[in-house]
Each structure stands twice: as structure tokens, then as C-alpha cells.
Design a protein around this nucleic acid. Structure first.
Length: 704
DNA sequence: GCCAACATA
């Protein structure tokens, strides 16, 4: 079928042909970090050296090396597929940047990317992973202090490393890959690296970013205060990608219900377009399941009518059991079209092979922190232009593709150019604690590339003060505050862990904390919801979710970490394995910080009291209206339906470790507590704080 | 009756 003839009425192609001024938007590549080492058979026949030379970035090799000599910072706009992530570190190595025991670091937002790119580079160099080329991510250090010259790390790990080596002396070059994603850790690293550059002018920084942010990064890292460009310390270089064009189709009118239209568009493509898999972006699990059900139904009808080409609709989202996630990677028979209905997980984290058609609903579900209420919300908001471009690019991997946007071109023009950086929509208490530990005494004056709301900073300082991590003068306390910063989790969890020795239950608390770090412990497959709920109830205890999680962990260990047992009990096996690793790490840390290893031997009050010691500020009281109220502000809170306390006799007082606003303010991970514990364990928080005193405290924090 | 996606010696 000819391009542009689909479907005659509903869609119109964009005004300009691909390759014109909008080429940048129309021609997008897949994320190279996700690509398999050997792209096609014809490539496999080539020597590794030839393959390397064929990459678009190769033409810029000398220029890149020149810029790295001449400028402290180089911003590389590397379109996906140009080979930047794998090649630039090697160019630098070959040019001698790793001499004298120096290391070239490449930092990625995601673990998988760090590991896969590292192994690709090791392959290219004929090296064993972990020797000359290695990686270091949480729970998995595959590097060698003496021999590793190129080290791939996650952004979080890079920030962590600064705690031990504040000037990152081991490194001669740091490459921040995918910097345009603007994760919390990337933004922290950006600000911290700017500070390091002042002390270490010889350190080189390479920021790999999308077009949109290049100038922002350049201006941020340019230490030249004069108008004389020859004194610039930062330069931009653009490297074209290698890709197939993706033709964009916009809706001709506003779409009232994008789930319905997604289904219709899938069916139209399936009936009228040539073979090729479809990837549709929706915002959440519910939408994916709803659309999936409709697509399946309509596919059955078509099959009954005798349509020869079959369809295999598949869901994809993070909470999906691993076995079902894996189905999107299975090959389909020749006359069968794969249709993947996915959340944003398919935008960066997972690449579905063989996608030719992309459907973009134009929305995304984001976490947004409200600094005025101090509450996180999960909101469905319009996606950004950058996000739309990334989604469309998912169609251009195999051959020229098509992207159907379920919004008009006018609507597209009005979308924000980029997603708001995570730093500006997060609770900052972990960030502030970590910055303090890294010697940033006044986080309000930290050189953020995008400053967060001042109120968010104030809230963070207030919480840290209430937990005893900072003192009246906003200085990190010794040893408590410093120790809290060592934990790879939020300050409330850290406080709870550090107190656990005093409550005689460090064993249990380590388990509870590890378990709360796992998402989707309990699985609930769409067709076995009731069965899954019954399985969950077998672990539930009246004390609430924290002790229920403790039960699950102990049962998992009792059954020798058996995956079949998890499957039978609707438990997330991979998550539990991760909980074991998290717990081991926490126990090591507790030992180092001399918190005694001890068990409360089944005394649940000890564990609950210890939870109060960390989470006292997250308390809520049952209200006669049938839900809960926060103590200070009186917000109306609800028990999340995933809690074991949901639908049970409501305890008078509860503590929660997470509060998320969606259709209501929902508390998740809840425990029943005794109100006297609150007064006893957090008197400074519950007995002294009149509104006036608190206001004064706030003002003092703001003045810092 | 609800569950974007990542990440931390």
C-alpha cells in the first residue's frame, strides 16, 4: 500500500515531506544502547574494525578528540544510532586519555544500558568484560581497580562515588550519556561536575544529549564570562544518526478518547497496511488492559470473517509478570502481526524488535510533587514534543516506518518541548541529604541546571530537621545525618534502619525496608485476580503492610527462594530476589555503622515502634467520615486498595511509607500504630510544634 | 477499587 493513502479520511500526513526542514523530527533512530551487538547479517561478516569505521560518529573522530583537548566540556548531539556511546570512549582511550592510571567513565541513567553497552565495547576490543572495559552498577561491580580503563556506571553510582572521591580524581574524562533525559541523578551529577571542574580544570566532560538541550548544556558549562568566544570552555558537536525515516501522521481533529482511537487505529493499520509490527503507547496498566481486551475481541471478529493475516496483541508494562513481558520478544509466524500495547516502558527502557507502526496517544503518566502540600501525585499529562519524537523513532528500526499521532498538528505545536526535569517535580529530601553529605552546605545555592521550587527545598530541610539529620543551623549532624546519607534510600528509611538496633529488631527492619523498595511484590494477572487476592490474604496480618511484607520475605526464604513457589503464590520472583540483594547490602552497611544485628523474635510491637521512629511524620488518624486525616494539615487520606488493610476494620492510627495522589490521596504500605508511640518517639514533632513555632522554623530555614 | 518509568559502595 502506498504511503499516505492510509486511512483516507482520518489521517493526513504532515505538511512537509520527510527530509525537508522537519527532517529532524521525522527521521529518528532507535536507542543505540538497546540495540543488539550485530545489527544485520551483512554486518556480521565485516570485521569489528570495519564495523566501527562504518558508524556515523567515525567521521568525527579527530574532531571529537580535538574538542576534548581544547574544551573542558563538549556537548555531543548524537542522534541515536550514530555510535557515540560505544565509540567515543574508545577514541578517548586510543588517544591516551586513560594513561597514568586514569579512567574514562561513561554514565547512563539505566542499569541495563550501562551493562549492555559495556559488554558491547568489551567485545569490540576483544577484551574480557571487567578488565580493560568494565561496568559498575548497584549489586554488580564488574570492574577492576587496576586494569579497567573504560568504566560504565549508572548516574546514581557516579553521584555515590563522589562521596568517597569528591573530585573524582580517578577519572580523566566523564561522559554523561542520555543527559537529555534529565533524571534526578543526571541533574545532580551535572551540578556537581560543574563544581568539580573549577577545582580540576584538566577534567574533561562530555555531555551526550538530544538537540533540544544542547545549548542549555553549553551555556551551563561555559565558564567564559567574556564575549570573546575564543575563551569558551564548552563546545557543541552534532553527529547525524543512521536510521530509516519515519513518516508522521496527525489526527485531523481532536481525539475524544485516545484508548478507543488507539484500538481503531490498530485495526485500520492491520486491515490496510502492509506487514510489520505495531507499538501503541498508552499511559497506564488499566488503559493497556482495556485496549488489549478490545483489540483481542475485534481481532477475533476479523478472523471469523476470514482475514488471513493474524494478529497477536500483547501488553507491556512494568507490573506485568516477567513471563508475560517476555512474550513481546518472541518471534511471530510470517502471517501474524505483533501488536504491543505499552506504557512509557517502551519509550526508553525496552525496545520491541520489528516495529514499523507506532501509535502515540500523546499523553504520559508522570509523578509530580506538589511542594505546597508536600504530596506526590500521579498525573496523566500531555506528553512533550521530545517524547513524541522518541516514540515515533521506535518505528524506524527495521525499515521506513509510520507514526500515528492521536492529536492534531496544532496540538503538537502547543505541547511543551521537553518533559519537566525530574528535579522540578520530586520530593527533594533524598537529594538535599545527599548534597549535604557531598559538602554542598547550602543546597538552595547549588548550581542546578534547572532549579527546583524553593518550597520543595524548604520541605526537604524541614523533614531532615525533624529526623535529626540536620541541626538548627541546617548543618548535617554527626554522626546521624552523615550516616543517613550513606543509605541508598530516602531519609525516613535510613533513620528507621539506624534506630533499629535500639528497638532490638534490626533483622526485621532490614527486611521490611528491602521489601518496600520492591515494586509490585504481589502480582495480579488479569485473568486470575480473585485467585491472586486469595494468595495475598494468606500472607496478610492485621498489623498492616509492613509486617505482611516481612511475612512474605520470610516465607520466600523458607521456601529456598524457589521461583515456582513464587509463581504459585502470585509473588514477584525477580522482585524478591532483588529484595534479598537489597537486604544484604543494608545489613553490610548496618554492620559497618555498628548497628547491632538483633531480632525481636516475633515481637511485632518492636518492629512497629521502630517504623514510628522513622515515619512519625507520616501519621494519620481515623476520621468519623470513614477515611483518615493527617495530623498537622488535616488532609483527607484513603487506604490504597492494594493495602492489606483495605476493606478491613480500620485501625485508629496508621503510619504510611508512601502517599500518592491519584483519584484520591492514597496511603500505601500502611501499618497500624499506637498513638502513644507517636508522642513518645517523636515528641519534638507532635508536642512542641504550634503553628507559630513551625512558621518561625520555616522562616529560619528559608533565610539560610 | 487502584497499580508511569528509572535508580543509589
Amino acid at each position: 500500500m502506498e504511503s499516505g493513502s492510509f486511512p483516507p479520511k482520518f489521517w493526513k500526513p504532515g505538511a512537509e515531506a520527510p527530509g525537508a526542514s522537519l527532517a529532524e523530527e521525522r527521521t529518528v533512530l532507535v536507542d543505540e544502547s538497546q540495540s543488539t551487538p550485530y545489527v544485520s547479517n551483512s554486518c556480521a561478516a565485516l570485521s569489528l574494525e570495519k564495523q566501527r569505521q562504518r558508524l556515523p560518529v567515525f567521521r568525527h573522530r579527530n574532531h571529537i578528540l580535538y574538542l576534548a583537548e581544547a574544551y573542558q566540556t563538549v556537548v555531543i548531539v548524537g542522534e541515536t544510532g550514530c555510535g557515540k556511546s560505544t565509540q567515543i570512549p574508545q577514541y578517548l582511550l586510543e588517544a591516551g586519555w586513560a594513561k597514568g592510571n586514569h579512567v574514562i567513565a561513561v554514565s547512563q541513567p539505566r542499569r541495563v544500558a550501562a551493562v549492555t553497552v559495556a559488554s558491547r565495547v568489551a567485545d569490540e576490543r576483544g577484551a574480557i568484560l571487567g578488565h580493560e572495559v568494565g561496568y559498575c552498577v548497584r549489586f554488580d561491580d564488574c570492574s577492576d581497580t587496576r586494569n579497567t580503563r573504560i568504566k560504565f556506571v549508572t548516574d546514581g553510582m557516579l553521584v555515590r562515588e563522589m562521596m568517597a572521591d569528591p573530585l573524582l580524581q580517578r577519572y580523566s574524562v566523564i561522559i554523561l550519556d542520555e543527559a537529555h533525559e534529565r533524571t534526578l541523578h543526571t541533574d545532580m551529577a551535572i551540578g556537581l561536575l560543574k563544581k568539580i571542574q573549577k577545582r580540576r580544570p584538566e577534567l574533561r566532560l562530555i555531555v551526550a544529549s538530544a538537540t533540544l538541550d544542547a545549548e542549555k548544556f553549553r551555556d551551563f558549562f561555559n565558564h567564559n564570562d567574556t564575549k570573546d568566544c575564543s575563551k569558551d570552555t564548552c563546545a557543541i558537536l552534532t553527529v547525524q544518526g543512521r536510521t530509516f525515516p519515519v513518516e508522521i501522521f496527525y489526527s485531523t481533529s481532536a481525539v475524544p478518547d485516545y484508548v478507543v482511537t488507539t484500538v481503531e487505529t490498530i485495526m485500520k493499520i492491520h486491515e490496510h497496511e502492509e506487514e510489520g509490527d505495531i507499538l501503541a503507547f498508552l499511559t497506564g496498566q488499566d488503559e493497556v488492559e482495556e485496549a488489549l481486551k478490545d483489540v483481542k475481541e475485534r481481532a477475533r471478529m476479523l478472523a471469523n470473517q476470514g482475514l488471513k493475516v493474524h494478529m497477536r496483541p500483547l501488553p507491556m508494562y512494568a507490573a506485568l509478570p516477567h513471563r508475560e513481558q517476555a512474550r513481546i520478544f518472541e518471534r511471530t509466524p510470517r502471517n501474524c502481526r505483533k501488536v504491543v500495547l505499552a506504557t512509557n516502558i517502551a519509550e526508553t527502557s525496552i525496545t520491541v524488535q520489528g516495529v514499523i507502526y507506532v501509535i502515540d496517544c500523546g499523553f504520559v503518566k508522570l509523578r509530580a510533587y506538589n511542594p505546597h502540600t508536600d504530596i506526590d501525585a500521579l498525573l496523566i499529562v500531555p506528553a512533550s514534543q521530545a517524547s513524541a519524537q522518541q516514540r515515533a523513532g521506535r518505528a524506524g528500526r527495521l525499515r521506513p516506518g509510520k507514526a500515528y499521532r492521536l492529536y492534531t498538528e496544532e496540538q503538537f505545536e502547543k505541547l511543551p518541548r521537553a518533559t519537566v526535569p525530574e528535579m522540578q517535580r520530586s520530593n527533594l529530601s533524598p537529594v538535599v541529604l545527599q548534597l549535604k553529605a557531598l559538602g554542598i552546605d547550602n543546597p538552595l545555592r547549588f548550581s542546578f541546571i534547572a532549579a527546583p521550587p524553593a518550597q520543595a527545598m524548604v520541605n526537604a530541610l524541614e523533614l531532615l530537621f525533624a529526623l535529626g539529620a540536620i541541626d538548627d543551623d541546617c548543618h548535617l549532624t554527626e554522626p546521624l545525618g552523615m550516616r543517613m546519607a550513606e543509605f541508598p534510600m530516602g531519609p525516613m528509611f535510613a533513620k528507621m534502619l539506624l534506630e533499629s538496633g535500639n528497638f532490638g529488631c534490626s533483622e526485621e527492619i532490614a527486611t521490611v525496608v528491602a521489601m518496600t523498595q520492591i515494586q509490585n511484590v504481589f502480582l495480579s494477572p488479569t485473568n486470575q485476580k480473585a485467585k491472586a487476592a486469595r494468595a495475598k490474604r494468606r500472607f496478610a496480618v492485621e498489623e498492616g503492610d509492613h509486617l505482611t511484607l516481612l511475612n512474605v520475605y520470610e516465607a520466600f526464604m523458607k521456601h529456598k527462594k524457589n521461583s515456582q513457589w513464587c509463581h504459585e503464590n502470585f509473588l514477584n520472583y525477580k522482585g524478591l530476589v532483588r529484595a534479598v540483594a537489597v537486604r544484604e547490602q543494608l545489613v553490610r552497611l548496618l554492620t559497618r555503622l555498628e548497628v547491632p544485628a538483633c531480632s525481636s523474635e516475633g515481637d511485632s510491637d518492636a518492629v512497629l515502634r521502630c517504623i514510628v521512629a522513622g515515619f512519625f511524620s507520616n501519621a494519620a488518624q481515623f476520621h468519623y467520615t470513614g477515611n483518615y486525616r493527617t495530623i498537622r494539615e488535616g488532609y483527607e487520606l484513603f487506604i490504597h486498595p492494594s493495602s492489606v488493610l483495605y476493606g478491613e476494620k480500620p485501625p485508629k492510627w496508621v503510619l504510611y511509607s508512601e502517599l500518592v495522589q491519584s483519584t484520591h490521596h492514597y496511603m500505601r504500605d500502611i501499618s497500624a500504630v499506637d498513638v502513644t508511640w507517636l508522642l513518645e518517639l517523636a515528641p519534638h514533632y507532635y508536642q512542641q510544634g504550634t503553628e507559630r513555632e513551625l512558621g518561625a522554623k520555616r522562616a529560619k530555614l528559608l533565610a539560610q
